[in-house]
């Protein structure tokens, strides 16, 4: 059991009142939770929290990715001591908002939550918002995923053109096989006349994959301002995590 006093503290009086209303409806019955959790975004609201890195249990996460309703849901899950089965059930029967709230809470490592089941759910659907909510903006995945899950998530982030900086802890997880896959993916993109995933540059700087380094060297000579800006961003990112 984890004590989380700061989490409630992130909500305003009126947001807490909305949470109290929903908690009263739920009354710690999973049947009622399956009905009323969905009303949290309407009762609590979707105010975006300010960017801030916090350490929650073992994980580091960026609160700037959370909305008031996500915080409220996490409070509800923690106070009800929900485990994996209950959270997976909420995901399976949830709407987009509910899945987003459940996906966000995964990084808190709640109770006995063994997250692979939820990672699997989030990976096997095409809704980009849910992929982002479950996998990005914390280092939970980098800490706990096995190599296969990790590689699949990074490649999906690349495929969706998401910001590598949001995959906290990526610098600790750069196996050769993943770098090879990224080199293949970059070659494929080039062959199709499309831009490579900008995250490729930071990974080239931090890893030692010869194909990625060749690509980086070539692109450093590019006169395209977008490529130059992406390489500059990648340099900053690589330096900040080195």
């Amino acid at each position: 059991m984890i004590a989380w006093p700061p989490l409630r503290g992130r909500l305003s009086e009126s947001e807490l009142a909305g949470l109290a209303w929903v908690q009263a409806k739920i009354g710690n019955s999973q049947t009622q939770r399956l009905v009323w959790l969905a009303s949290l975004p309407r009762r609590v609201g979707k105010r975006a929290l300010a960017p801030e890195l916090v350490k929650a249990g073992v994980a580091t996460l960026n609160l700037g990715a959370w909305r008031a309703a996500d915080v409220a849901a996490a409070v509800e899950f923690i106070e009800a001591s929900l485990g994996e089965a209950a959270l997976v059930e909420l995901w399976d029967h949830g709407d987009q908002e509910e899945r987003r709230m459940v996906g966000r809470s995964v990084c808190l490592g709640l109770g006995d939550l063994a997250t692979p089941l939820l990672w699997d759910r989030a990976h096997r659907q095409n809704d980009q918002i849910l992929f982002e909510a479950t996998f990005l903006d914390s280092d939970h995945l980098a800490r706990l995923a096995d190599d296969e899950v990790w590689a699949r998530a990074v490649l999906k982030a690349a495929f969706l053109n998401l910001d590598l900086a949001r995959l906290y802890g990526f610098e600790r997880r750069l196996p050769d096989t993943l770098q090879e896959c990224l080199a293949d993916f970059a070659a494929e993109r080039r062959a199709a006349g499309r831009p490579v995933w900008p995250g490729t540059y930071a990974i080239a700087m931090l890893g030692e994959n010869p194909r990625l380094l060749t690509l980086l060297t070539a692109d450093r000579r590019s006169t395209d301002p977008t490529t130059q800006a992406q390489i500059a961003d990648a340099t900053r990112l690589a330096e900040s995590v080195r």
Binding site: I2, P51, V54, K55, G64, A65, D137
Partner: peptide, 25 residues
């Protein structure tokens, strides 16, 4: 259809002091 837009300029939080939440009881 993506959270990316909301997070523009928001993801580059690196090397900052980190507040620690929660202790295993």
């Amino acid at each position: 259809s993506t959270l990316g837009a909301t997070h523009a300029g928001n993801s580059f939080l690196r090397g900052q002091s980190v507040e620690t939440w929660g202790k295993r009881a």
